[in-house]
């Protein structure tokens, strides 16, 4: 049994007169401690898939087993407890704007009922881990995108998670900052043994830190396997197109077009 096991997952958004099949019969497994990538073009259903894992989005059909527990079947209380083990970081960071950095990192510990004094001590440690301890008293508005994402990662660590879900966590950042944030995620994965699931539309992100990758296209999982294999020998149209986009953008960079 794998750590995260998704079976026959489907999700349809029902509108007034039309409905969107965001995910169709998705099956995939993620092992403990790996960095797993999910790639696809915009609108492929990546966010829906990752949000189904912690049930921010309720699937219409299928199972999401995390360490053997089927998420959709949990009670509200069990779900809240399970969610504490699954941290999430977002493209738009989603920090509390009215709290300073330290109090943002304390937030998950407040939810877990940890005493304020201990929470602050631990928060300072997490801020050191993400190398932003000097900004403890700053407010999010005073930080750059990369710094905000570091704070978000520290906040994720503060819930002492077994899994970190990243929904386009580097898509709002410049290439250099992206590289540093990816390195940090890799380091956290190694040091804490946290399983990392990375959602992205950028090939480069997958290449840089993921072991295995799934390719999503129009709500279907079209290809899956070790990153080296999928990228060397892409079978699906979607994977080929992603590779092409990457080559074009690299050419663009070389020609100084980017």
């Amino acid at each position: 049994m794998s750590f995260i096991q998704i079976e026959h997952l489907s999700k349809t958004y029902k509108g007034k007169d039309d409905s969107v099949h965001a995910l169709n019969d998705i099956n995939l497994t993620i092992e403990k401690g790996e960095i797993y990538g999910i790639i696809g073009l915009s609108g492929a259903g990546k966010s829906t898939l990752v949000r189904c894992i912690n049930l921010l989005e309720r699937p219409c059909e299928g199972k999401i087993l995390i360490d053997g527990k089927n998420m959709p079947e949990l009670s509200e209380k069990e779900l809240r407890e399970e969610r504490r083990k699954i941290a999430m970081i977002f493209q738009q960071f989603n920090l509390l704007m009215q709290r300073n950095v330290l109090d943002n990192v304390c937030f998950p510990m407040e939810i877990a009922g940890i005493k304020r004094k201990e929470a602050r001590l631990r928060a300072k440690e997490y801020l050191k881990t993400v190398e932003i301890a000097e900004k403890a008293k700053a407010y999010p508005v005073q930080l750059s995108g990369g710094q905000k994402q570091r704070v978000a990662i520290a906040r994720a660590l503060a819930s002492n998670p077994e899994i970190i879900l990243c929904d386009e966590a580097t898509s709002a950042l410049d290439p250099q900052t992206t590289g540093r944030i990816l390195k940090l995620l890799k380091q956290i994965n190694e040091d804490y043994g946290i399983t990392v699931v990375i959602i992205t539309h950028e090939m480069r992100v997958i290449e840089e830190i993921c072991g295995r990758v799934a390719v999503l296209d129009k709500g279907n999982l079209v290809e899956e396997g070790p990153v080296s294999e999928v990228f060397k020998n892409p079978k699906s149209k979607a994977a080929k197109r992603l590779l092409l986009t990457k080559e074009l953008s690299e050419e663009g960079e070389e020609n100084g077009l980017n």
């Binding site: 921010l56 809240r80 969610r83 989603n94 920090l95 709290r99 998950p108 407040e110 877990a112």
Partner: peptide, 27 residues
């Protein structure tokens, strides 16, 4: 209040009441 911040709190396992007091009203 930004919906993303509410989602972040929910994803951390916050109760709805906590979201109301510590996220919605505070933000």
């Amino acid at each position: 209040v930004d919906k993303g911040v509410v989602e972040a709190a929910l994803s951390l396992g916050a109760k709805k009441f906590t979201v109301i007091t510590k996220v919605l009203l505070a933000e």
